[in-house]
Computed example of a mutant assay.
Amino acid sequence: MRENESLVRGKSYKFALRIIKLCRWLQAERSEYILTKQLMRSGTAIGALIYEAEFAQSKADFVNKLNIALKEANETNYWLMLLHDAEYINDKMFQSIEPDNKELIKLLVSSIKTLKTSG
Rank of each mutant, 00 (worst) to 15 (best):
R2Q: 12
R2G: 14
R2D: 14
E3Y: 11
E3F: 11
E3C: 12
N4R: 07
N4S: 07
N4D: 12
E5Y: 14
V8W: 04
G10F: 10
G10Q: 14
K11G: 07
Y13Q: 09
A16Q: 09
I20T: 08
I20G: 04
K21C: 09
K21P: 11
L22I: 11
L22M: 14
C23L: 02
C23F: 13
C23V: 12
R24N: 06
W25L: 14
L26E: 01
L26Y: 07
Q27K: 12
A28N: 13
A28V: 13
E29D: 12
R30C: 09
R30H: 04
S31C: 05
S31D: 01
S31E: 10
S31A: 02
E32G: 08
E32F: 01
E32H: 03
I34H: 10
L35K: 11
K37G: 08
K37H: 09
Q38Y: 11
Q38K: 14
L39K: 05
M40F: 13
S42P: 01
S42A: 15
G43W: 10
T44I: 15
A45W: 07
I46M: 07
G47S: 14
G47F: 13
L49P: 12
L49M: 05
L49F: 14
L49C: 13
I50K: 08
A53Q: 03
A56H: 08
Q57R: 06
K59V: 11
A60P: 02
A60D: 02
F62W: 08
V63P: 06
V63W: 06
N64E: 02
N64W: 06
N64V: 04
K65A: 01
N67Q: 14
N67I: 09
I68N: 05
I68E: 06
K71E: 06
A73L: 04
N74M: 08
E75L: 10
T76Y: 12
L80G: 03
L80K: 08
L80Q: 02
M81I: 10
L82Y: 15
L83I: 05
H84T: 00
H84L: 00
D85G: 00
A86F: 06
E87W: 06
Y88S: 03
I89K: 04
I89E: 06
I89A: 00
I89S: 03
I89T: 02
I89G: 03
N90L: 08
D91T: 11
Q95V: 00
S96G: 02
S96Y: 04
S96M: 00
E98C: 04
N101F: 06
E103I: 02
L104V: 07
L104N: 04
K106M: 00
L107I: 04
V109I: 15
V109Q: 09
S110N: 00
I112E: 01
I112H: 02
K113R: 14
K116S: 07
K116L: 14
K116F: 02
T117A: 08
G119V: 01
G119N: 13
